[in-house]
Design a protein around this nucleic acid. Structure first.
Lengths: 204, 204
DNA sequence: CTGCCTACAATCATGCATGTATGTATGTTT
DNA sequence: AAACATACATACATGCATGATTGTAGGCAG
């Protein structure tokens, strides 16, 4: 009726609360990691209480899994899609590198990803497994792109695609995050590093 | 008297147990991080009990600080010294990159460094500060080497030395760790990445 | 308007890890 | 060898975060 509709359906309330909690959890995870993440803090940061949190998520683990899923989705939509849409494999990889640098500026999703990976590698934890799966899909993509690029000659020979892909992603993680916000150098240095790994000369 | 002297002086006992506990703590830190590190586990892993641990270290924090110090010392002795001994700045940086890859094969010190850095960045914790200082010294070294290399023409112009150094170290951390043990590709990929960051063409 | 259902808050109980205090054995000194 | 100190083990207390339970206010169907 009136200008802005103030009536909120229950589903709406639930969705907004959930989003706020997820965002707060993502910030918390990227800052403190999983173990040190305190749910009281998360809830307060989002403007709610732990009661609300436990109403929307089964437990701490479930919350973290939801964050992981959210990170995967946004990264897929904002970086992966654009990269895979490129015509040749090399351009795809470089687009991914630059896109990731930009992604790091906007979200703390990348930091979440890195933090959790570091924290859970070598463990056997559901959250770590979820991260691992997301990451493995990425590594597969990259390894295939490297293979394709070497086949069509745009990427020179080098270490096994699997390792090259692993190193490539390691670059995206750490360089992209280390430099996040130092525009425009973040993109430039990330691309330089990516080219270095791939053995492709820099553009002049 | 007899063949092998089985008599152990107190200082000896102390030193060996301390070393064992430090090693176990380093493994634990590189695997679980600081927050999730359980001292009972550390002590058992070293073949002792928490009693011994609290006898040699004031508390958990003190133990972690000792590990950080140990990492700094070994890295300095095994990587930094050899790198700085090189004649020209570019060789120093590349030596550092390759040396670090080899360092990652032997110790888990690099993993400790990375894990703690990720865990404590943005916090205000004594362990984080200690890590930060160690790391800052490194970053200074690298930034100066980059500046020197650009002055003598061996390294082309690029982003500010400070950022280039940060990216360079990010490479060492993640690539070196990600590939640790995948000899000889770890060294090759680490060097490739380092050259990429510095903008130096790969050797053929 | 009445009654139920859902979103959320507030309180309580459990578990677990740190740190402390005490006990024992092994080395060291005189 | 007796007195002492140090390395280490065992047992206890404290604190804190999770997760469960209970309580309340607001939407939504009859």
């Amino acid at each position: 009726m009136s200008g802005t509709d103030t009536r909120r359906t229950q589903a709406d309330r639930r969705a907004t609360t959930r989003a706020a909690l997820l965002a707060a959890a993502a910030r918390g995870l990227s800052t403190y990691g999983y173990a040190s993440l305190v749910l009281e803090q998360v809830a307060r940061d989002a403007g709610y209480t732990r009661g609300a949190l436990y109403h929307l998520f089964a437990n701490k683990e479930d919350l973290a899994l939801a964050v992981v899923e959210w990170v995967g989705e946004t990264w897929d939509a904002e970086v992966r899609q654009a990269a895979l849409a490129q015509k040749d494999p090399l351009t795809s990889l470089l687009t991914m590198a630059k896109g990731h640098a930009l992604y790091c500026r906007r979200h703390d999703g990348a930091k979440v990803m890195m933090t959790l990976r570091v924290e859970f590698t070598g463990q056997d934890h559901p959250v770590g497994r979820a991260m691992g799966e997301t990451y493995d899909r990425l590594e597969n993509d990259c390894a295939e792109l490297v293979t394709a690029g070497r086949r069509d000659g745009s990427i020179p020979a080098g270490p096994p695609p699997r390792l090259t892909a692993a190193a490539f992603l390691a670059i995206l993680e750490s360089v992209g995050i280390e430099l996040a916000g130092n525009a425009p150098h973040d993109v430039e240095l990330t691309e330089r590093a990516a080219r270095g790994i791939l053995g492709v000369a820099a553009r002049d």
